[in-house]
Every structure is written in C-alpha cells, then in structure tokens.
C-alpha cells in the first residue's frame, strides 16, 4: 500500500486534519474524515456535480480532486452554508420555497453550484441560469424548481447586499 500522507484543510471554518493515501479523493476525505456526508458522490467521474464543494471560494468536483490537492485549502460544503442553526442560506431557502428538490441527493451539489454561480453573476437571465447550472444533473425535478429557486435566490441575495 502506498504511503499515507498527512492532510490538513479548513472545512466549514474548522481545521480538519487527517491521513490518506495519495489516491484518496477529496470527496472521500470530506465524507469519511471530515464527516461531511452532505458531500454526495453520484458518478465518480466528474459529470453529475453532486459532489460539488467550494474550494477557496470556487465550485469544484470533489470526486475529481485528490485530497492531497486540497491540502491547506479552505473548503465549504453544504453543511457550512447556513449562517446559524435557525437560518438557511438564501439559496437553501429558495430551493425549499420553489420545490427545487425531491429526493435531495443532487441538492447539495446544486446549492453550492448555484451559490458560486450567483457570486459570479448576481443578476442572471433565465437563459444564463439554465446554462449556468447545466453542469449538474437532477433526475427528479425536471429542473423547474431549481431554475425558479436560482431566480429567487438571486433576487434575495441582491436585496440582502
């Protein structure tokens, strides 16, 4: 077996230390060592987007990164998005309001992708929304509620600034 490397990264504001072989994926590190099981692994080949997390503020696919590549990085998973236990992030709130989820499996990846998308494009058109979230797959909703939620979250985040 390959050597174990020691790992340290900031996950949702807390330092998480662990160990793993160089081939350990970031997704598996986050799920199994940082205990962030909101990171969902849907395809393990970088297409479905369920495992999306924010790495230094940018949306990345944690199944396509090795944990060692994220050593020292600042990671946000869906568990780290809500500001406090009583309040949801505007994107989370919008997904609930607009029925942007059914089974919920793709949802954490979508929420983080939308959060990053709206950070880059705070006032998107519907067409920009549809193409902006086309890197994530949902099999339940037909995207109707997700597009509506992105629209609502954009307005809420603009109003909140």
């Amino acid at each position: 077996m390959a050597d174990q490397k020691s790992l340290s990264m900031t996950v949702n504001g807390r330092t998480r230390r662990g160990r793993g072989e160089p081939r350990l994926t970031l997704a598996d590190f986050l799920r199994e060592q940082a205990l962030c099981t909101g990171v969902h692994v849907g395809c393990e080949h970088g297409v479905c987007g369920s495992c999306t997390v924010l790495m230094d503020g940018e949306a990345v696919r944690s199944c396509l990164l090795f944990a060692v590549q994220a050593d020292g990085a600042d990671i946000t998973t869906v568990e780290g998005l809500a500001p406090d236990p009583e309040t949801l992030h505007p994107v989370q709130e919008a997904f609930r309001d607009c029925h942007g989820l059914q089974c919920g499996f793709c949802t954490p990846g979508f929420i983080l992708s939308v959060a990053a998308f709206l950070e880059a494009n705070p006032d998107p058109t519907d067409d920009e929304i549809r193409h902006g979230i086309a890197g994530n797959l949902c099999r339940c909703t037909g995207y109707q509620g997700i597009v509506a939620a992105t629209r609502q979250a954009a307005a809420a985040m603009r109003a909140g600034e």
Partner: peptide, 23 residues
C-alpha cells in the same frame, strides 16, 4: 395547499441520511 416540504430543512443542509452515510 402547497405546504412546504417537511423533508427539506435536513436535505438542503446536508443532513439527510442516505445509505452511504451509514458507518
């Protein structure tokens, strides 16, 4: 009524428990 889903608070915050989350 379009009652908001009782499932959602856990699912949008990553606190759902799917089979792969069982250890």
């Amino acid at each position: 009524q379009s009652v908001k889903r009782l499932e959602d608070p856990r699912l949008v915050t990553g606190h759902g428990r799917y089979v792969d989350d069982i250890a």
